[in-house]
């Protein structure tokens, strides 16, 4: 059975941190892409979606190339005595990269749904782009952005392949629940694997149900408006 709960804390901490990072970066990129009309739109979108389409091991390998000893980010960070590979930050980076496309794509769809006349009304009422985003676009697209955040969190929590490649499986440091499950079942410790599976199902269900309840109220108000 499970006696050491550190994989759960590592998983939750990793997924939460990765979600916060993807939330802001994903939203910024989504908003920029929603307004970008240039020719390269399709190509840029393709690159941004790539982490979702590629096998996680490929993502892990690419991240190793970037953050490894000879990678450009690895070298740059080494100047400040920072190493990423096989540390807790590696689990965060792997989870954030893999969760990013879900956040970006879903949020962008939500932003594009916002009627342009609301934005124009805000402009004539003296608002700059930054304030329009926070006071008009984000509140109106909130159900979509909330859904994007939940999806990103769920994906970050379940991340396995890229995390294993970039962060390894160091108990108490980088071993997340999915990795603990893999090594428990490979080591023949089926009871332990089973216990972790129950835990991760409970956590995932709780997060999704809780956030549904949380956004439910706002969502119904806005969908009423849309239906009108």
């Amino acid at each position: 059975m499970v006696t050491d709960f550190t994989p759960l804390w590592i998983s939750l901490k990793t997924a939460t941190t990765a979600t916060v990072i993807t939330f802001f970066i994903g939203m910024a990129v989504a908003y920029w892409m929603a307004n970008y009309q240039g020719r390269a739109k399709g190509i840029i979108d393709g690159f941004l979606i790539l982490p979702m389409v590629l096998p996680p091991t490929v993502i892990g390998f690419i991240l190793l190339l970037i953050f490894g000893k000879n990678g450009f980010m690895g070298k740059f960070l080494a100047e400040f005595d920072i190493t990423i590979v096989f540390t807790w930050w590696a689990t965060v980076i792997a989870a954030a990269v893999v969760a990013f496309p879900l956040m970006y794509k879903t949020a962008r769809g939500a932003f594009e749904q916002v009627d342009g006349s609301y934005i124009e009304a805000a402009k004539t009422l003296g608002y700059n782009d930054w304030n329009i985003f926070w006071r008009v676009v984000l509140p109106l697209s909130w159900p979509g952005v909330a859904a994007a955040t939940i999806l990103a969190f769920a994906r970050a929590l379940g991340e396995f392949g890229a995390t294993l490649m970039l962060a390894g499986s160091i108990p108490g440091k980088t071993q997340t629940v999915p990795i603990a499950i893999y090594f428990a079942s490979e080591g023949g410790n089926m009871d332990k694997a089973f216990a972790w599976i129950i835990i991760i199902i409970a956590v995932s269900l709780f997060v999704v149900v809780f956030s549904n309840m949380w956004t439910g109220k706002k969502y119904s108000a806005i969908s009423k408006v849309r239906g009108n």
Partner: peptide, 9 residues
């Protein structure tokens, strides 16, 4: 505006 564009929220 034609559709009034009142902020629904």
């Amino acid at each position: 505006f034609q559709n009034f564009a009142l902020f629904p929220h």
